[in-house]
């Protein structure tokens, strides 16, 4: 069980939602993330870069079935470090939210 720890990198709303979606899956397509969060490609890319630079997220490209050209789909996943930091952050949020739950 991780200790509660507030993480400022993760807490930015879009980044928190990205990590929340990735926490229970091995990977999610960039397009699925973008559509679920209702953000632009550029916004999602910016936040993924921040998370990748922090070592919380990995990006992996693979060929796409839906595309006949050379473009590829991008799989996004949390690293082990990202998972533990996110879990600790959620515990911190629960502690903070405790008074209204």
């Amino acid at each position: 069980m991780p200790e509660a720890r507030f993480d400022e990198v993760i807490h930015a709303p879009v980044r928190l939602r990205i990590c929340g979606l990735l926490r229970r899956v091995d990977g999610m397509d960039f397009g699925v993330l973008r559509d679920t969060l209702s953000v632009t490609d550029a916004t999602l890319s910016k936040h993924l870069k921040t998370l990748t630079d922090a070592g919380y997220v990995t990006l992996k490209k693979s060929a796409s079935l839906a595309r006949s050209d050379a473009r590829r789909m991008t799989w996004v996943g949390l690293t082990a470090d990202g998972r533990s930091v996110f879990d600790a952050h959620i515990l911190a949020l629960r502690e903070i939210a405790g008074s209204v739950e």
Binding site: H11, A12, R17, L93, R94, I96, A97, V100
Partner: peptide, 21 residues
């Protein structure tokens, strides 16, 4: 540069995560 949220904001953030899933 997020600052620590209030209790209500933290609860709303947790609700957003459930809504996204």
């Amino acid at each position: 540069s997020p600052i620590r949220p209030s209790a209500r904001e933290a609860a709303a953030s947790l609700d957003d995560l459930a809504a996204d899933r």
